[in-house]
């Protein structure tokens, strides 16, 4: 019981979304040359796992489902200190939605679990490209893990007793939850800061063997539950947001001084919405 915690951190390699564009004529996504990053939300999950390993010992395995090039993100995660990396890659996984993604990841985690029982599975709160926040709960349900979402802190974890206490962000406050291991934790952003990798970690990551599993390796018999086939949701179209039909009406003052422009702006706003002054009710506003 004293070998510490066995932890799996699910990460995703995502395009740096600030740089994606739609082709103005063909309306298709122009992905070429868009750099990829580890989904920023996942970094909080990785750091939490590494911190627990510092505290209690154990291992941190990073797992991703994606194309071969997702190896880059796994190496980066190892450079920050993860012990092992597994790439789940197969053409059957292409086009997976959340349900199919959680299916494939669960299979892979199940295989890890068969080697060494997994105590905690971590994910980020959501991804920046899919942004659904649903893969974590999906894994928890499929694997029968106790589900802890939006976790901001893990004040106690006791492997011998098989218990974990977590702070969960809720509406208007924080829930203090206690549950049993194994569990699934989705980490809230801003809860920690990912450590820099040590030089040995960075060097190790460069040379490390990345374990690569296809569907069969992960023990998936029924590939119709994977990828596009296993995805109940279908993307019917992708498009760029429409600009508003009219551009803003520019306000100019009697002269170009800020005071004149501001006076004109107040007139314009009140003319457009005569009830506006009545909305301004806070006493301090009238002081």
């Amino acid at each position: 019981m004293s070998q510490g915690l066995t932890m799996v951190v699910c990460i995703k390699q995502v395009p740096d979304s600030a740089q994606i564009r739609v082709h103005p004529v063909t309306n298709t996504i122009m992905r070429q040359g868009v750099p990829t990053i580890i989904n920023p939300y996942d970094l909080f999950a990785l750091e939490q796992a590494l911190a627990l390993r510092d505290q209690l010992g154990g291992t941190v395995t990073v797992l991703t489902m994606g194309p071969q090039m997702a190896e880059t993100s796994l190496r980066k995660a190892m450079g920050h200190g993860a012990d092992r990396a597994i790439l789940l890659t197969d053409r059957f996984f292409a086009g997976s939605d959340t349900l199919a993604t959680s299916f494939a990841l669960s299979a892979a985690i199940g295989k890890i679990n068969a080697e060494t029982p997994v105590d905690v599975v971590f994910t980020g709160k959501q991804t920046i490209d899919g942004d659904t926040a649903q893969v974590g709960p999906g894994i928890a349900r499929r694997m029968g893990l106790n589900q802890l979402t939006y976790v901001s802190a893990i004040p106690a974890i006791d492997k011998a007793a098989g218990e974990i206490t977590a702070h969960r962000r809720a509406e208007g406050g924080v829930q203090v939850l206690k549950t049993k291991l194994p569990c699934l934790v989705t980490m809230l952003e801003g809860t920690n800061e990912l450590r820099r990798g040590s030089l040995p970690d960075v060097l190790r990551a460069e040379r490390a063997e990345i374990t690569t599993w296809n569907a069969k390796d992960a023990g998936i018999e029924d590939v119709t539950k994977c990828g596009l086939k296993g995805s109940p949701t279908k993307v019917s179209k992708v498009f760029a947001p429409k600009p508003r039909s009219e551009r803003a009406a520019m306000i100019e003052g009697a002269d170009a001084t800020p005071a004149a422009i501001a006076a004109a702006a107040v007139e314009t706003l009140v003319a457009a919405d005569p009830a506006l002054p009545g909305v301004i009710t806070r006493p301090s506003a009238l002081a």
Partner: peptide, 24 residues
């Protein structure tokens, strides 16, 4: 609602029901 509660519940429910879920 895509609140912390709603998202926690929706993810669990969609998996249990094996149906499609579109978030946000």
């Amino acid at each position: 609602g895509a609140s912390t509660l709603g998202r926690d519940l929706a993810g669990a429910l969609a998996t249990t029901l094996a149906t499609g879920l579109t978030a946000d």
